[in-house]
Design a protein around this nucleic acid. Structure first.
Lengths: 320, 320
DNA sequence: CTGTTAGCGCCTTCAT
DNA sequence: ATGAAGGCGCTAACAG
């Protein structure tokens, strides 16, 4: 592999000049620039990234924390991040945590030790204090609504979104509304819970704990939900389902169990993934790939802190 | 950030000695080793990986080519790779190709340019010649049966596996067997196709092109399959489905359409993913996480070439 | 067993 | 506008 010295020799200039054209620095005469370009072309020269990194003092590595890798939600978020990283010559360090705090701590430790330039946390289980502590050691980007805090984030206002969805259902005449969620903890879940409570209170609707279904992540969880709904003497008439996968599971199970949708049970999904389109599920579109892209940009951009809210659109289809 | 020199000074030794204990080299007296350990502990010293990499002449980067990131199959494969990479201090460069040849070429180019130490290709669209050409530039690991070729791989003998599954169905009395596949091209698909043809011929069963369903990747594709089956005057009695997701889709759609499983239509999945267990789908277990782990090991191990066949177990459940 | 020293390949200040 | 030279932090001959 040729190095910068070889190119310099070949082009009849100094290494400095080569470095200058490599990095698009000014003050290089057109002819020398051309000569260097030719030499680079000829040798198919590629700078040694390790040397560049050592010199610059950055790793060009971005850590990405996700709980699961076999879930389309995180797959799409990762797709957005990975694509963008590739374009900018950054590499990724993937931390799959399964929501074990220890794994998150490992990621944070790498940030502290400057093993990575920044850390994108797509979903966390750890306490806020933990984040706060490591913030002084390096750049952390979150995927949750942390307005008011001094951290970068790309997020959705789930309070607003949930309220929007609930209102839509209410306007369609639903009074007995429940929801399915991935987990109870986490900023997003808390926002949704609050939105739900507030909404129920506002319209003086009874709060029914049994209408809330936890641990709904995959298609098969929809089955469990339907089984439980079937057992109820006074079942909900509509369900807000925070994952299209689960919504799809519910819709298909309802068909099997002769529960007509949306007449007996209205279903509203989340994400607007292909499956929702295919099955004509009313849903709220979350542009995950775009969010991933933005998360990455925040991880590498110059500006210190930025928070970007992503707006969610309601896609009307046949299940409400 | 302290560097190796600081540690050396603090421990009252030379940098070489520090480097030696850092890398577990022999010939360091116990007391000096201890002194170095203490200094490292005290400063919470972490070696600068860029400097290490530059010195060693490796990137400690492994490229990973996957077509889609929102599919559990590749998600799990990636999980195995990423976990193992983390342990060994390697980082990943993700190439999501969507089966565009250009994207694969980019990955290959990075290998050639020594931007990555090795490339794991989980699924490819490019010609074999392409792989063959780049093999001389760097390490490539495949996830397909390439016995006879001089490349490392972790693979499943899909001819054998398909034959095993077909035999199982045949023994259960099925004569009209069809199958669903992700795509027609690719080594794995070709093996399956061949196994299918040979099997049909061996038992003198008629070959019915309509029994073969292409582009079956996600749950929702199961719906399409069922719709097509319904239209047939002489439908298959059993279906080999190369993805549990699709199998799940088929099973649920059959319930909706009052097609009894396994009486009217037997379904055999692939992968043994959680959804298959949940829905009691008979399937062939493919240990994807373990395969990913092995792919990574092959990418970094000293030995030049190794091919590891992964054996598949048939999991009997209720859909056959 | 231990230390000195010359790279690894690139960037960047400084002088011209 | 250009080049010489020092430095980034670590590894590994080599000498002792």
């Amino acid at each position: 592999m040729a190095n910068i010295k070889d190119i310099a020799k070949m082009a009849g200039v100094s290494v400095t000049t080569v470095s200058r054209v490599l990095n698009n620095h000014p003050y290089v005469s057109a002819d020398k620039k051309e000569a260097v370009r030719k030499a680079i072309e000829l040798c198919k020269y590629q700078p040694n990234i390790n040397a560049v990194h050592l010199s610059i003092g950055k790793t060009y590595l971005i850590g990405v924390v996700i709980p699961f890798s076999n879930h389309p939600y995180f797959g799409l978020l990762l797709e957005g991040i990975a694509n963008e990283a590739l374009k900018s010559n950054y590499k990724l360090v993937l931390f799959q945590t399964n929501y074990e705090e220890l794994r998150e701590a490992e990621a944070l430790a790498m940030l502290k030790d400057k093993q990575i330039d920044a850390l994108i946390i797509c979903s966390r289980i750890c306490e806020w204090d933990m984040i706060d502590e490591y913030l002084s050691y390096g750049r952390i980007i979150l995927c949750e609504d942390v307005r008011g805090e001094n951290v970068s984030a790309t997020f959705i206002d789930h309070y607003k979104t949930f309220t929007k969805a609930l209102t839509y259902l209410y306007d369609k005449g639903h009074k007995k509304i429940g929801y399915c969620i991935g987990r109870q903890t986490g900023t997003n879940s808390k926002q949704r819970e609050l939105a739900y409570h507030d909404f129920m209170e506002k319209w003086d609707l009874p709060f029914e704990p049994a209408y809330i279904f936890d641990e709904c992540l995959h298609v098969e969880d929809g089955d469990r939900v339907v089984q439980q709904v079937k057992k109820m003497s006074d079942p909900p008439s509509a369900l807000l389902v925070t994952s299209d996968q689960v919504a799809a599971g519910i819709v298909t199970c309802c068909k099997v169990n002769n529960i007509s949708i949306p007449e007996e049970l209205a279903i509203m999904g989340f994400d607007n993934q292909p499956i929702a389109k295919m099955m004509n599920i009313t849903t709220l579109e979350i542009p995950l790939v775009e969010m991933g892209k933005n998360l990455f940009r925040q991880a590498v951009e110059k500006a210190d802190i930025s928070q970007k809210e992503i707006f969610v659109e309601l896609i009307e289809r046949d299940t409400v």
